[in-house]
């Protein structure tokens, strides 16, 4: 017999009461800002507020599309995300396999512990260390370059170096932690497969290629799908912290542009229009990739 909704609410009233602060949090800090996107259809003015600013329709969207900067910003964002995906995605898989094949357990534990550590550093600490190491006059890296007889390179002021630095530091910070999921997949491989491979005369390298790697293909596929939205959705912090007037031609991505135009420049409606366009594309990507991962791996975010 189906009980009435009213009865079920009454029976669950303690649980609903406990849930209330959480629901309120999502309302105040996630849903109300979603409605804040209406400012992208206005000429929003901080002093007039949301109720008295004039409506302007799609003006800011048209402005963005006709702005020559727009193409550069979108291009920077996509290229950074794409290169990051290409170079940073395989790294944890390779490292996980190395860990798995390491027979000296204590050494393996040590390298694992050390490689997880950078994940817990803040973007500010990471960026600060990079700025120090890469400094053209005092940085260790440039001094090493000089001692080999080359000219020092002003890495952070040169647009052609930004993506390399960004992605290399990402790999340094995220690879170790990223191995966890693949190590779990590796642990589930049936040891009998190795025995069978050895019977067939496979050496260590062949066992890795024919048993280990195929064993974690499902995990790789799922992680691949889940990483796709990262191509467009690049965190603000690091790009903002190591970006500067010198490397802006490649370092300026959508989020840093929104900050500069909206918060520093006061062009809030225009910045929101850009941000919303990005948000919609991201949402589409997340939705599609989640649907795909549900199909492929029977695993999904929800």
């Amino acid at each position: 017999m189906k009980q009435s909704v009213f009865y079920r609410i009454k029976r669950n009233k303690v649980y609903l009461l406990l849930l209330l602060p959480t629901l309120l949090y999502y309302l105040l800090f996630h849903y109300v800002p979603m409605f804040g996107i209406v400012v992208s259809f206005m000429d929003y003015n901080l002093f007039k507020g949301i109720w008295h600013s004039p409506w302007v329709g799609l003006k800011h969207y048209r402005m963005f599309l006709s702005n020559p900067d727009a193409w550069l910003i979108v291009r920077n964002t996509l290229l950074l995300g794409l290169y990051k995906f290409i170079f940073a995605f395989p790294a944890p898989i390779a490292l996980a396999v190395l860990f798995y094949e390491m027979r000296w357990k204590k050494f393996r534990r040590f390298v694992q512990s050390v490689s997880y550590l950078p994940y817990f550093l803040s973007s500010v600490v990471l960026s600060s260390v990079m700025i120090m190491l890469l400094s053209p006059s005092t940085g260790w890296i440039n001094k090493a370059i000089q001692s080999l007889g080359y000219e020092p390179i002003n890495f952070l002021q040169r647009p052609e170096w930004f993506r390399t630095i960004y992605i290399a530091s990402d790999i340094w910070q995220m690879t170790g932690y990223g191995t966890i999921i693949f190590l779990a997949a590796l642990a589930a491989i049936d040891p009998q497969l190795y025995e069978a491979a050895r019977m067939d005369g496979a050496n260590r390298w062949k066992q890795t290629v024919h048993v280990t790697i195929p064993g974690i293909i499902p995990a790789i596929v799922i992680m691949f799908i889940m990483s796709i939205s990262g191509i467009i959705n690049i965190p603000f912090d690091k790009a903002f912290l190591i970006g500067n007037a010198g490397n802006m031609d490649t370092a300026d991505i959508i989020t840093t542009y929104v900050y500069r135009i909206g918060i520093l420049g006061g062009g809030m409606s225009y910045a929101t229009a850009i941000n919303l366009s990005l948000g919609l594309v991201t949402m589409l990507l997340v939705y599609l990739t989640n649907a795909a991962s549900r199909k492929v791996g029977e695993t999904s975010l929800w």
Binding site: L23, G36, T272
Partner: peptide, 27 residues
Amino acid sequence: LVFYKPIMLYIVFTMMFHGGMIPFYLV
């Protein structure tokens, strides 16, 4: 739990879409 599905949707939707930096700041 009563309304379990709609509540989960309400929570998980925020992982897919957010208003962005400026609306967050204004709010």
